[in-house]
Design a binder for these strands. Structure first.
Lengths: 143, 143
DNA sequence: CTCAATGCAAACTATTTGCATTCGA
DNA sequence: TCGAATGCAAATAGTTTGCATTGAG
């Protein structure tokens, strides 16, 4: 079941409606390099669909997060970001504090250690956030 | 050199001034269980020092972060938090999404793995953020 | 037809800033 | 004395909401 199907299923189950705007936003979102903030996606969409509203984009992204096809990220720059989520490919992020470049990484050992830590404290993990901030290859050369 | 000394040194070096408010805020901050948001610390201080302003508390906490005796945290609830920092005791956090409880943890192996990942991508890490969100012992019993 | 979705503007929240006044060195 | 610090109020930025209108089922 792909993300479009998941979203349609979610819409049907909740008695929501499948509008043009939602489909437009969903396509743009899935086709993206991801890590879009509401503002990013809104300005991109605005070029081709001048009638689409900021609030709609925002509400739709929240919906995506709610039904599980997106995850909300926060890189500490005061803007929420959303990333399309493939259920079986979790990853974390390296964020360049100079140019904004985002690199994804996976490290199963870290995941395992996290679980151990949670278990030690009788904690039931729902989600986690793990980001490494610094200078990317190019930016550390420049300075 | 303790945190007060570090701050005094910082103030002197930058030609700043050592006011009553700053000392009051510094004491309250260091004596705290930490993880204060500006609002938290402001309301706490307000009881004994009604004349102290929100902006002053906020500017002072930023100063602490700048001189390295505090670190700014963000647990995704829309409020910045500050934690007194002992240079040699880095730790990360477990955050209960139900009751707000915060538990600190250290895991040297994770730190090591992080460095490896950064090295693989020619990334120069400045800081990182690692938080596990979920239900604490008590809250998972209740539900 | 009915109720959810939309677009707009206004409300909100945390944070930051401008400025006249106070105060430390 | 003089510039940094303060307190207040106002500005900002991102997000969220109220509401009249539109549109999907």
């Amino acid at each position: 079941m792909d993300q479009i199907a998941i979203f349609n299923e979610f819409v049907r189950r909740k008695g929501l409606k499948n509008t043009n705007q939602r489909m437009t936003i969903l396509e743009a979102f899935l086709g993206s390099k991801s890590h879009y903030s509401t503002e990013d996606l809104y300005s991109k969409l605005r070029k081709e669909h001048p009638k689409i509203g900021y609030a709609t984009v925002h509400r739709t992204l929240k919906l995506f997060a709610e039904c599980g096809i997106a995850i909300e990220l926060d890189f500490g720059d005061g803007q929420a970001r959303f990333e399309p989520l493939n259920v079986d490919q979790h990853h974390d992020h390296l964020v360049c504090t100079n140019c904004g470049l985002i690199i994804e990484f996976t490290e199963p050992q870290i995941e395992k250690l996290q679980e151990q830590i949670a278990a030690q404290h009788n904690f039931k993990i729902e989600k986690h956030r793990h980001e490494l901030y610094g200078l990317c290859c190019d930016c550390s050369k420049q300075s």
